[in-house]
Amino acid sequence: MGTFLENLVTGAALGSIYALISIGMTMVYGLLKILHVAHAGVYVFGALLGLLAFRLTGSILFAFPAAVLGCALMGYLLYRFMYRRVQDEKPLIPLIVGIGMFTAMGDAYRLAAGPYSISFEHGLAQTGIVLGTFHISFNQVLVIGSAAALLVLVWLMVNKTKTGLAWRASAQDREVAMGIGVNSNYMFGLNFMFGSALAGIAGVLVGLYYGAVNANMGEVWAYKVFVVMVLGGLGNVTGTVIAAYLLGLAETFIISSWGYFLPRDAIAFICMILVLILMPNGVMGKRKQV
């Protein structure tokens, strides 16, 4: 029983991280039909900025705003100077541009931060809640709690604000939305900033959760986000969040029961290819909603 609950919590924490990283990419796909690979680069940027802020100030409270601001800016710049130029080309062109940018970013981080893991320890990591044999660490509470709060924020932003309305309108039909006065390019920029800020927070959370930050920590996530997106039905935010938690839980339970028979990412990609072939609209079966 203890193991089951612990797997549940570990899986939920993993799922929370998947969800926070995937939301930005899913929203971009919903709006622009672009697979935004460089998003994983933004997430690593957030982790590194958070670490830098933490090292400079000595408090994790400063890590989050630093990551949010830095990543929002980076997201905006990526859109303004890169994707905006290619957003109306064939979908492959923004995809390859994004992969190129992500590759370059990964190497730039390696040159700046070195190829090794850098410790990101904060004092609270060892504390936690213990109930008999069942143990939740502070980090798990932090990750699951902040993810839940941020997901509520995303829901409010998409469904209850004018900006969210403009996003949904642009996602359904960009030209009509522009016709009734939505400044699409501005909205897309805002969307990139919002999604990137979430990725930045996810970066800091991952750094705290694993106690280390690594210049190539984006490698696995970059491509796993595709899996989450495809499982969730492309561009569908709710579906993506559900898929993220499902993937996190499934991975944790499969690995604790059967161990690794293939590397994690290979399993995830096999799932993705099967879903793409058999259920192209995602497990949730809905389409084109933000």
């Binding site: 890169m82 390859i96 992969i99 190129g100 940018m101 590759t103 370059a104 970013m105 990964g106």
Partner: peptide, 9 residues
């Protein structure tokens, strides 16, 4: 890899 990536972009 930096060069390859930027070249692609």
């Amino acid at each position: 890899m930096l060069t390859y990536g930027l070249l692609l972009v």
